[in-house]
């Protein structure tokens, strides 16, 4: 059994949204597009995005930090959205486990989105059908592209290499090793949907700072009178003085 999926290293993600923008750019012109925008410059902009980067603040002030969570379809192994679809438009592709939507069969009842615990299904109001991340199915199987480009657009766009793509059911694959070595986890394990996308946990470097000492040094740095005198020339010959 093959299960293609994304592995996202939250330690590397810097929240630049390049994955989301490149996803939108590729899929708008791709086989599973378009991804329309409704009223994009108005008061209430609306639009279809397969990939969204969410920003969270964790911890209590002043010990807080910003974390990013890129989120797209999880391509669940027990996909609830596929089970409930009344038309069979939502299906899980047998050869690689990708969950796809057949737009010709979709009637736009939105029932699949009710059954998705991750909020990763998007309704296209112009076409009247549900759309979702396809893991760039039109790229990864496209033999006209160079082999190294047969990857999802978001993976190619990530400047920090936070996103990896591969077969998580193959124990020898790079993504499987990443999940094993870096303790990859799944979002919302309570959903029992068995999501395929994995996240590598954020590792935090804890640096202890004495706040009073920090303030004193900062004040000294600002105040020119209390600034420490340069001592580099103490034992050296002073060539600058007349």
């Amino acid at each position: 059994m093959t299960q293609k999926a994304l592995v996202i290293d939250l330690n590397k993600c810097v929240g630049c949204h390049a994955c989301a923008v490149n996803c939108k750019a590729w899929n708008t012109g791709g086989e599973y597009g378009p991804l329309p925008d409704v009223n994009p410059y108005g008061k209430d902009p609306d639009g279809v995005w397969f990939n969204r980067v969410q920003t969270y603040e964790v911890g209590q002030y002043p010990d807080t930090e910003i974390r990013y969570l890129p989120k797209s379809c999880m391509h669940c192994k027990d996909a609830p959205c596929v089970e409930v679809c009344p038309t069979g438009a939502s299906f899980k592709r047998e050869e690689d486990g990708i969950v796809l939507v057949n737009y010709d069969a979709c009637i736009g009842c939105k029932y699949c989105s009710w059954a998705c615990p991750y909020g990763c299904r998007e309704y296209d109001p112009l076409a009247g059908v549900m759309k979702k991340c396809t893991l760039c199915a039109d790229r990864i199987n496209n033999e006209s592209l160079p082999v190294n480009e047969r990857q999802p657009a978001c993976v190619l766009a990530c400047p920090t290499g936070a996103r990896s793509f591969g077969d998580i059911d193959d124990p020898q694959s790079e993504v499987s090793n990443q999940i094993k070595d870096k303790h990859g986890y799944k979002l919302l394990p309570e959903s029992q949907a068995n999501p395929s996308n994995h996240y590598l946990p954020k590792r935090t470097n804890h640096i202890r700072v004495d706040l009073e000492d920090f303030k004193a040094k900062r004040k000294a740095k600002i105040d020119p009178d209390k600034r420490p005198k340069p001592t580099g020339l103490k034992n050296a010959e002073d060539f600058a003085s007349p």
């Binding site: 949204h17 989301a20 209430d44 902009p45 609306d46 639009g47 279809v48 995005w49 969204r52 980067v53 969410q54 920003t55 969270y56 603040e57 964790v58 911890g59 209590q60 910003i66 989120k71 989105s113 909020g119 299904r121 998007e122 309704y123």
Partner: peptide, 15 residues
């Protein structure tokens, strides 16, 4: 403590 700051291009969309 986790607080959502930005939903990511999702001010007012389907979800």
């Amino acid at each position: 403590s986790i607080q959502l700051m930005d939903t990511g291009a999702a001010y007012q969309h389907f979800n």
